[in-house]
Every structure is written in C-alpha cells, then in structure tokens.
Amino acid sequence: MTCLETIRSIFKHLHWANQQILETLQKGEEENKHANNLFSHILHAEKVWFTRLKGKDSSHLPIWAEVTLESCEELVKQNNQNFTAFLSNLTNLELDQFVSYNNSKGTEFHHSIRDILTHVALHGQYHRGQINILLRAADLEPINVDFITFRR
C-alpha cells in the first residue's frame, strides 16, 4: 500500500468515525452541549484545513462555533465530499508540496500536504476521544471509533 493509499484509507476512517459520533449525538435523549461543541469544532477545523489546502483564505471561517446537529450533519457530508475529491486527484509526488497559509492569528506557515492531512486526521481523533470521555461522564456508552474497528 502506498502512502497515498494509506492516507485515503485514514480519511475513509475519519468520515466513518464522524458518522458514528453524529449518529450517537443525534440519538441522545439529552443534549450534551459540550460534546456537540467539540464535534462542531472537529468539523469546522476540517473545513478550514481543506480551504487552506485549496490555497484559499480561511480567516473568515470559524474554528469554534456552536451549531446544531443538523448543521454538523451537513458539514460531515460536505467535508467528506471535499476530501474525497481532493484525495482522488492527488498524487504521491504532490504529498510533499508545501502549502502556505495564515493561521487564525494571521501568522503565516508553510507545511506539506502530507503533514496537513496527517494533522487533520489526528486532530479529529483526539477530539473524538474527548467526546467519548464526556459521554462516559454522562453515563453513556463511549463510541468505538478505533481505526481497526473501522477496518473490520
């Protein structure tokens, strides 16, 4: 398996994991506002990074925004479509191309496409773990979003 094939697989997992979180939060009898906000953050960050990968300004996009689960559902769909299309047109050689962008404070950075894609996947998994802690604290069953579970 090439590096690009691995990244594509990781992004399929990312979408699957987002779907698992979304469905669980939608089924909740009581709204878990903090979990919803973390989930919204994951999705908004994915959108910001995709915008940067496309060479566009992301400064107008929120990173933390309280939105409804209906809005999250649309972002899950939109982010998956965007990254799937982006990754389907990407080559192994392009993974090492650098992208220049400004962070939310206006500081300019340059990172490879490979590093950005890795960050997006790890960032989401980190916050999905936090969501699971919140679910457990609310006496709810955590969601198994492990990569190996996805691969099974």
Rank of each mutant, 00 (worst) to 15 (best):
L95C: 07
F11E: 02
Y126N: 08
E94T: 10
E74Q: 14
F150D: 02
I42S: 00
W16S: 03
T51Y: 05
T68S: 15
Q97R: 06
N92L: 11
D139K: 13
I63W: 04
F109E: 03
Q78H: 10
S104W: 04
G124N: 01
N80S: 12
L95P: 02
D146I: 10
S40H: 02
G124F: 05
I148M: 12
F150R: 02
E108H: 09
S71M: 10
A45M: 12
N36V: 13
I42G: 04
I133S: 14
E66K: 11
R52H: 07
L122Y: 09
K33S: 12
A137H: 12
T68M: 07
I10F: 06
T118A: 12
S100G: 03
L87G: 02
Q78G: 02
L135A: 09
I21D: 00
L90H: 08
E23W: 09
I133G: 08
Y101G: 05
D57W: 07
E141K: 14
P142T: 13
L93H: 12
E108F: 04
L134T: 09
A121E: 04
H13S: 02
I133E: 11
F150G: 05
E29N: 14
N80W: 14
W16G: 06
K54P: 00
G124L: 05
E108T: 14
H44A: 11
L22I: 11
I63F: 09
K33F: 10
T24V: 15
K27Q: 15
D57C: 07
K33L: 13
N82I: 08
L87I: 10
E94M: 11
L87F: 07
K33W: 09
I148T: 15
Q20N: 10
K105E: 14
